[in-house]
Amino acid sequence: MLIDNHNRTINYLRLAVTDRCNLRCNYCMPSEGINFAKRDSVFTIDELCLVAEILVGQGIEKIRITGGEPFVRKDLMVLLRHLTTLKGLNDISVTTNATLIGPHIDELKQLGINNINVSLDAINRGTFEKITRRNQYDTVHNNLIRLISEGFNVRINFIVLEGQNEQDILPILRLMKHYPVSVRFLEEMPFNGGSKTFQKIKWDYKAILAHITEAFPNYRKLESPATSTSINYQIEGHKSTFGLIPSFSRTFCGSCNRLRITATGDVITCLYGKPKANLREMVRGGNPREKVAQTILATLGSRAKTGFEAQNEHEKVFDKSMTSIGG
């Protein structure tokens, strides 16, 4: 079992398989893109399998595959097949922009990988294309509907962006009311390659809730696990639920149970903090299992208590794209 220096059990790993993405969402990276990691500095699939094995052996029970966009890796399914064989790993999930998942939906279902988070920040075509800077609306829409129809546990992640997509908050709730999905609204975080900095946001989780409940006054709060990052609700008459993730307000730090490992091997114990170690050369050297396991224990022994504390590790906090951090 992994326990950090604040007595929090760490059983959830967000494992990035790439820093590359086929979209250029304007809150995530500059329009010209970023300097993506060179191929030889990114974990191979075999190395990712090994890292996963080691951490599951240490007590990780849930792994979420992230990116970049995970499905830009043509060998991703090799990793996912391997993860399904690991004893003690009870939950495998994927976060995706749903542009490339289509050909893999059948196998994902066969493997029992049913938890899919779809990043979708607009339901209107024009807004979607403006935010993503790409023409993938139909593909995303079709794959989303297929995932829902095939019975996947779909959660839509919608980052509320001031001046860009507020007008889509209510329409996406109306559209999804007939489907058993969760629409989760995230506060904006300024991880966008350093092109924007700010100290506060207009659309914090309280403002988002007020906006929704003014239009849908009949709603109830749902019970959520203690480690949940989202505060969850259901509107009367809706099959869907909606959640609020205070990613900027950071109200959930006290129960944080997650660890991040980037595609290049950085170990990140808090999204707002600096990397604490790098596993790549350990994995590629001798005796990797012992070295990686010891490094993970060491990093968790000096973990920041909150995201606000971790933020103090930086001189300039938001100097990386979210795609290189691992989501």
Rank of each mutant, 00 (worst) to 15 (best):
N7Y: 08
L13H: 02
C21K: 00
N26M: 14
Y27C: 09
I34A: 08
D40P: 06
F43Y: 14
I45K: 07
D46R: 12
L48Q: 09
Q58K: 12
I60L: 12
R64E: 13
D75W: 08
L76V: 08
L76C: 06
L79E: 04
L80T: 04
K87C: 12
T95L: 08
T99D: 05
L100D: 01
Q110Y: 10
K130W: 08
R133C: 03
Q136P: 09
Q136H: 15
V140K: 00
I145T: 08
E150H: 01
N153T: 10
V154D: 02
N165H: 11
I169F: 00
P171C: 00
I172F: 07
R174C: 06
L175I: 04
M176A: 02
K177T: 02
H178W: 09
Y179M: 06
S195E: 15
T197G: 10
D204S: 03
D204C: 03
E236C: 07
S247K: 04
C253S: 14
C256P: 03
R260L: 14
T264C: 11
G273F: 01
M282V: 02
R289K: 15
R289S: 06
K291D: 03
V292S: 01
V292M: 01
L297D: 15
A298Y: 05
K305V: 13
H314K: 04
K316E: 05
F318Y: 13
